[in-house]
Simulated scan of single mutants.
Amino acid sequence: MTAFPPPLEDPEDDEHSPAERAAAAARSTWVSVGVNVVLASAQIIIGIFSKSQGLIADGIHSSSDLIADFIVLLANRHGQKAADADHPYGHYRYETAASLALGVLLLAVGGGMLWSAVTKLEQPDAIPQVHLVALWVACGALVIKEALFRYMLAVAKRVKSSMLVANAWHARSDAASSLVVGLGIIGNLLGYPILDPIAAAIVGFMVAR
């Protein structure tokens, strides 16, 4: 007679109940949603008017974070459901699926950024001069994204959620991309216009990686 293993508890965290982990995930993710709405709007709008492709790319990256945040919220909602006839061990694998979806999303966004930047680099004489305001927006975004990353990672570690860790590192990749964009804008302002689309290409590579 075959002995089947008993239903598993949450494999990630024995100290917090599913409800506590779900509440922490929802709270931190909604904070991320609010931050990314403001950042993406500011980066894309200012990027268009300041003629900075790098800043626009960074804004698109921030927009991808919104999609990632809603994937996390969806997985968080379903992952806390109790075991049933179709899922005798619970719904915790929603977190694993969400982590995979985040990775696929980043790959697609990064590929699109690379394609756009390479297209611009094929016509270097047509690259415009960037306005100084783009640099201030990039620097502000860097500070905000790094702070968001530290906050989200702290919550993820507290409740031991791989899904939240993945989303936190998504925010960290945004902080790194803002740094690269800032350097590209500085180069453009110093008389090397090609550095702005190069920064956009680097951001695309970083996101895809």
Rank of each mutant, 00 (worst) to 15 (best):
T2D: 11
A19I: 15
A22E: 08
A22K: 05
A26D: 09
R27N: 09
R27C: 08
V31C: 13
V33F: 05
N36W: 14
L39F: 11
S41D: 03
A42Y: 10
I44K: 08
I45W: 07
I48S: 01
F49D: 02
A57L: 09
D58R: 07
I67G: 14
L74N: 06
L74Y: 11
L74F: 05
N76L: 07
G79P: 11
G79F: 08
A82Y: 01
A83F: 04
D84F: 01
H87F: 15
G90Q: 05
R93K: 03
E95L: 00
T96A: 11
A98F: 04
A98N: 09
A98C: 05
L105T: 06
L105M: 12
V109L: 15
G111F: 12
G112W: 11
S116D: 09
A117V: 07
T119K: 14
L121F: 08
E122C: 10
Q123Y: 10
L132V: 12
A134N: 05
W136V: 13
V137E: 04
A138D: 03
G140I: 05
A141Y: 04
F149R: 13
M152N: 13
R158W: 09
V159Q: 07
L164D: 02
L164H: 05
N167T: 06
H170E: 05
R172H: 08
A175S: 14
L179D: 04
G184M: 01
L190K: 10
G191Y: 12
I194R: 11
A200F: 02
A201R: 00
